[in-house]
Amino acid sequence: MSAPTIGVLALQGDVREHRAVLEQQGARTVAVRRPEELEQVDGLVLPGGESTTIAKLADRWGLLEPLRAALGGGLPAYGSCAGMILLADRLLDAPADQQTIGGLDVTVRRNAFGRQVDSFESEVAVQGLGGPPVHAVFIRAPWVEEAADTVQVLGRVSGGPADGRIVAVRQGDVVATSFHPELTGDTRMHRFFVELVRERS
């Protein structure tokens, strides 16, 4: 079976880390900054970063509509942290003009856990990954405030002040986590996504 080609949205953020883990899992990766680069990919990862910056650059360089069209056409996508914000249909605590790509029928709250001094690491049990809970790194992270019935909740925070908050979701072939598996060496989330893309392509 040939390796799937997975694009990583490369306007800003921890692009290199995502590409490294995806390649480790047998995918070819492409940095996506232009519409023509998006056309080559079988799946798309939206990295961590600053969601307002990424959204503005995508808008300025004519990438927002092609991204919406690709997601609407069934392109599998995985977003971590800022990537989750970009995939959300609705936002809270965002500048009024902040645009998203959408694709997940959820309301996401930006910087939901607080400021950087509140950023934390914790264990999160994620459905469908198998094995022990994921050691999850949350950095000025968002959470899913509300999810439509069609959205599958894959993981919640356990313990601490945010106990029970939704931090991993899936709707069809669109997956998102509040946390950053690309920073921990735990490759299960990326393996799961590469397999999903492989099945679809």
């Binding site: 880390e17 934390f120 914790s122 000025r140």
Partner: peptide
């Protein structure tokens, strides 16, 4: 610095501090 226990979220670790800078890359 710190390894997290299941139910005690840990703040201020090297990974959280350095990871914050990773999110600023390209910016």
């Amino acid at each position: 610095n710190v390894t997290a226990d299941a139910d005690t979220p840990s703040t201020g670790t090297d990974r959280v501090k350095r990871g914050m800078a990773e999110q600023l890359k390209g910016g």
